[in-house]
């Protein structure tokens, strides 16, 4: 393995909008093929990241034996990563409690 870090620009590799969970899986398939112990994922140009993508990205990163380093993470992307990590620590969701059950027939 090469000790020199390699960098990929995620907005060009995938899309400026990181929406789909399976795209995060595809990304890590790609990262695993890079012959380097360290991969820098540059988020320059990313305008949106969904919660599903963020969750899968973090799961894949945890499983990877490579060192994955995020660069130039926009505030909204950072907020989404934090929201996912926070919800893993504290999985209490919004409670929706219907007051009535109505039959339509």
């Amino acid at each position: 393995m090469n000790k020199t870090a390699e960098k990929i620009e995620i907005s060009k590799t995938l899309s400026p909008r990181l929406g789909f969970r399976d795209s995060a899986v595809d990304l890590f398939h790609l990262l695993e093929k890079i012959p380097s112990d360290t991969v820098e994922v540059d988020f320059t140009g990313v305008t949106f990241m969904s919660r599903s993508f963020a969750h899968e990205y973090l799961q894949q990163k945890k499983k990877s034996e490579k060192k994955i380093v995020e660069l130039n993470v926009p505030d909204n992307v950072d907020s989404m990563f934090h929201a996912v990590l926070e919800s893993i620590k504290n999985p209490d969701k919004l409670k929706v409690r219907p007051s009535r059950i109505i039959s339509l027939s």
């Binding site: 219907p98 007051s99 059950i101 039959s103």
Partner: peptide, 19 residues
């Protein structure tokens, strides 16, 4: 089944075959 949610109380629906 169905649910309607707004800022008021949520409503849950049991749907018969027509629905």
């Amino acid at each position: 089944g169905a649910i309607y949610i707004s800022s008021n109380d949520p409503l849950l629906y049991k749907l018969g075959d027509k629905y």
